[in-house]
Amino acid sequence: MDFSQLLADVPTLVAVIVGVPAVLAAYIVGGEYVVRLLPDKLRPSVRPWIWVGPALAFVGFFLVYPVFGTAYRSLFDLSGNSFVGLSNYVTQLSGFPSGGSWIAIRNNVFWLVFFTVLVLAFGLLFAVLTDRVSYESPIKSLIFMPMAISFVAIALIWKFMYSYQPPGEPQTGTVNALLGIFHQDPRLWVQDPNVANQALIVAAVWGFVGFAMVILSAALKGIPGDLLEAARVDGAGELTIFRRVIFPLMMPTIVVVGTTLVIFALKAFDVVYVMTNGNYDTDVLANRMYKLLTASQDFGDASAVAIILVAAVIPVLIFNLRQFRAVEARR
């Protein structure tokens, strides 16, 4: 590595380390000074804006502006020069069921259902199964471990897991090697459109189950022990206790985790990009948008896909926020 380049940047580094806190301090002191100048009555209504101002500016500049910019761009042709109205949307949403974005939309729905349900089911299963065993934390750490790996790496790992060699040759892919143990012929996973989506979703589920488990496990531990004891004395078996007491009490948390997973499923990108790049009928909206933007250099269509994605996510997001607030309020 060329350290001289790093050294050349030292003045910049110093400027950032000293400058950022200095600017921040100046802003706070200056802001408070301005607030002091105001009449007493106005102060309480002005002060919050001074504090929340920088955050608002950042969100506005890096989030709101790009969204509106994208929406605007989606109304222009591929080079961004001539206004084409809604025709990009027409292109993307025509040709049902296999033209335009429809394959990607279908796969996103597929992800939404199976990814969400599988992560929740396994997360709940692991949370419940590990709850009362003595080796709880090592097991949970193991299950949580994939969360520490980037999804690109997870995708690569699973590419190896699914790797295929012709029958008779040693199978380096774990999945096909397992098939070999049961005297089955190896098969294509990622390259077979019939199972490719499932294969990708399994990889993502593996990467995400730890997240669901940890949060659901916290919710499980939040249920007072004497409720379960009361149910036991009331004559309920363990399964009934789970169905009638534990599960309903965990429901708000399950909903919050579930909607978070739905949003993740709608945004699914890295696993698809790395494992298939959308081939073998596995394309999803985020990957399609990326391909339109880079390979086809089609800004208009890419923006239209992006807006379709945003439109799909927003309702879930609002629902999630509401639910989260409801859970908080119940504490």
């Binding site: 007072p224 004497d226 009361a230 036991r232 004395v233 009331d234 309920a236």
Partner: peptide
């Protein structure tokens, strides 16, 4: 516990 035909009132009440 569930087969002992006993009812118990907890200090915390333990209502569902």
């Amino acid at each position: 516990a569930k087969d002992r035909d006993i009812a118990m009132v907890f200090q915390s009440y333990a209502l569902y």
